[in-house]
Amino acid sequence: MKARPVLDHTLDSHTFYSYYYLKEELIAFCRKYHLPTSGGKIEISERIAHYLDTKEILTVQMKKSAKPCIKEITLDALIEDNFVCSEMHRAFFKKQIGSSFSFTVAFQQWLKANTGKTYDDAISAYHEIVKAKKKRVTKIDKQFEYNTYIRDFFSDNKGKTLQDAIACWKYKKCQQGHNRYESSDLIALDKLKRG
C-alpha cells in the first residue's frame, strides 16, 4: 500500500487530487505558501491544484455581502435580491412555521433562486421541501465526502457500528483514488481484528 504523500509544493495536481486531505491541511498549505485561505474546500483545492502546476497564486475576488434592506417581513412581502439568512428572517419563519424551522440548504437555495416571489410562497416551498426530504435520500454536496461515505457504508452494511464505518473511512482516505465507499473497504475491519 502506497502511503499518502505529504501535501507540499513538490506534488503535482494529479497526485494531489488522488488523495484525501482535510480542509485544515489545505488551509495550512495555503498559509505556508501564501495562498488565500478563503472559500470552501472545493475552491481551496482548485487554488492549490493551480499553484502546484503553475506556481502561480490565484487572487480571490471578495464578494460584497449585501445588507438586507427589508425593514419588516410580511406574508405579502417579496423575497429580496441577494437574500441573506438574517435573524429577522429566522424569527419570521419560526413565527410562521414553528420552532422546528431551520434554514436547510435546500430552502436557502430556493430562497436565493426565487427572488420576487412572496414570503407566503416561501413558506409553502419550505413545507414541500420538508415533505420531499422525508420521502427520499438527500443529496450530500461534493465537499462532504465523509458524510457521503458514512451514509453509503450504512446502506450497504446493516448492523455495523459507527466505529466500523469510521475505521473503513480512515482506511479509504489513505488510499490513492476516489473516496467513495466500496464493499472492498471492509478489509480495514479484518486488518483491525488481526491487530
Rank of each mutant, 00 (worst) to 15 (best):
M1V: 03
K2L: 13
P5C: 03
V6H: 11
L7N: 02
T15F: 04
Y17K: 12
Y19K: 04
K23S: 12
E24A: 14
I27R: 05
R31C: 10
Y33N: 00
Y33Q: 00
L35D: 04
P36D: 08
P36W: 00
G39T: 01
H50Y: 11
K55T: 06
I57G: 01
L58Y: 02
Q61S: 13
S65T: 14
C69G: 13
I70H: 03
K71S: 13
E72Q: 09
E72M: 08
T74Y: 02
D76G: 10
A77E: 09
E80Q: 09
E80G: 07
N82Y: 08
C85Q: 12
C85T: 15
C85K: 12
S86I: 09
S86V: 04
R90N: 15
G98T: 03
F101A: 06
S102P: 04
F103I: 13
F103D: 05
A106E: 14
Q109P: 09
Q109Y: 13
W110V: 00
W110M: 00
K112E: 07
K117F: 04
T118Y: 03
Y119M: 03
D120V: 04
A122D: 01
S124R: 15
Y126D: 00
I129T: 01
I129E: 03
V130W: 01
K131G: 07
A132V: 07
K134H: 12
K135V: 05
I140V: 08
E145M: 11
T148V: 10
I150W: 02
I150K: 09
I150G: 05
R151D: 06
S155K: 14
Q163T: 15
A165E: 05
A167R: 12
A167N: 11
W169S: 08
Y171A: 01
K172A: 14
C174V: 12
E182I: 08
E182L: 13
S184W: 02
S184D: 08
D185R: 05
L186V: 01
A188I: 06
D190M: 09
